[in-house]
Design a protein around this nucleic acid. Structure first.
Lengths: 228, 228
DNA sequence: CGTCATCTTGAGCTGCATCAACTGACGTGG
DNA sequence: CCACGTCAGTTGATGCAGCTCAAGATGACG
């Protein structure tokens, strides 16, 4: 399947946005679109990885299973995000679709050749890797020693930011992209604790539940105070 | 000060190792050596960063302070490691010397020009960023939901690996590069808990204390079992 | 020998995990 | 259309791992 970059919703935010039109088209001819259903696995930990991809729409999670079979979510991938490691023969973590998703997939050598051919692409990928690294450390700082309430509050704020168009103000209302269980796996808590802390934050007037997945940020200031 | 790559202890492991001799020398002329004493700060969170560096000897920590002024260690940098973000105007985290250290420092634009001039360098930095990202996620998985004992055991094993020449077997005996407080900050525990778990592991026969900072891995298999 | 920093050990308390029951939404099949 | 099962979420009761506070112990150094 050929890619139609002209219609790509992330055409000016993804790594390939730094390429010239003809370069991008050349790269696109070497890639293909792939759709994933919710909970479908893109890469499985331990399996050989010979490809990488840009997320076009939907959302992915990067996760590991511990010895007891419990999942730990290590990162979320949003549209325009990039997954796949070039320099490792095997995937270290699972990459799974959180919702129905569409990706722009490239076979391993294709992208390696491309970063040699287009220096700007290497820069763009380096930038993205550093951003991912930063995001990982921020999450680490959060789960390191914050209280359960602070973790949940910070996660809700983060979702609000992600759901907003403006980079400074969070969306007033949005749908949670994660189930309670996924939020718990991400924060190093249990389902029950997440649920309880959401209840507490609602009772304090910081947020309000809107249906099963909807959240309204009633008092963002109060919420960010709880996240401290 | 000019750099003498020929004598550099990390000359074939650092990112610049991918360069040809003359390219490397050209880059070296644009950089300079810098020595840090223990606890000296290389980058401070929030301050503008206009440089990056390869660690030649010693060790660094990447850390944040939470609202209550407690430190959280997010990553350790070992010799041949690279620090500094090109694409961000301000440092997000503190970078501090854990022991007396020597770095090979480059002013911001120097390295940016170099990655454009030498595609192999961009690849090498991308590889390093992905490795850092992986290390960050491994640490995150560890601090996510493991027990105190498992965290301490895993950290000790990691130090053993790092202190060893062989990549597969850990060193039988080594000195802890971190104080109890630093280990606690890294693992999301308290000094007391770290101390207690070390005592437990010693009582179980997995390790033995050798003086103030020395650790002997009496039974590595038992230790890695405790880390599970 | 005293001082200071680091580490260890003890005792009690707290926050989160665990186990368990209940609710509501949804889908399936009789 | 209703009975039923399933699944996600909520709430309650209880226990324990790790935090907190406190008191030594150990070692480095002047």
């Amino acid at each position: 399947m050929s890619l139609v970059c002209v219609e790509c919703p992330v055409r000016d935010r993804a790594a390939c946005a730094v390429l010239e039109e003809d370069e991008r088209n050349a790269l696109a001819r070497a890639g293909r679109m792939r759709d994933l259903k919710r909970n479908e696995t893109l890469f499985a930990a331990g399996e050989p990885v010979s490809s990488c991809a840009t997320l076009v729409s939907g959302a992915l999670k990067v996760a590991t299973m511990d010895a007891e079979g419990r999942e730990q979510i290590l990162a979320l991938i949003h549209p325009a995000g990039f997954v796949g490691e070039f320099f490792r023969p095997f995937a270290e973590h699972d990459v799974i679709a959180l919702s129905d998703s569409r990706l722009c997939v490239f076979a391993g050598p294709t992208m390696e050749q491309a970063i040699d051919a287009y220096p700007a692409l290497a820069r763009a990928l380096l930038r993205r890797a550093q951003e991912d690294l930063h995001a990982s450390r921020v999450l680490q700082a959060l789960t390191g020693k914050a209280s359960g309430k602070a973790r949940v509050a910070a996660l809700l704020l983060g979702f609000g930011q992600a759901a907003s168009d403006s980079p400074c103000h969070p969306a007033a209302q949005f749908d949670l992209p994660l189930s309670r269980g996924e939020m718990a796996n991400m924060l190093g808590l249990t389902i029950e604790t997440v649920s309880r802390q959401i209840t507490v934050l609602e009772r304090e007037g910081a947020i309000a539940r809107k249906g099963k997945r909807g959240i309204e940020l009633v008092d963002p200031a109060l919420l960010s105070e709880a996240a401290a």
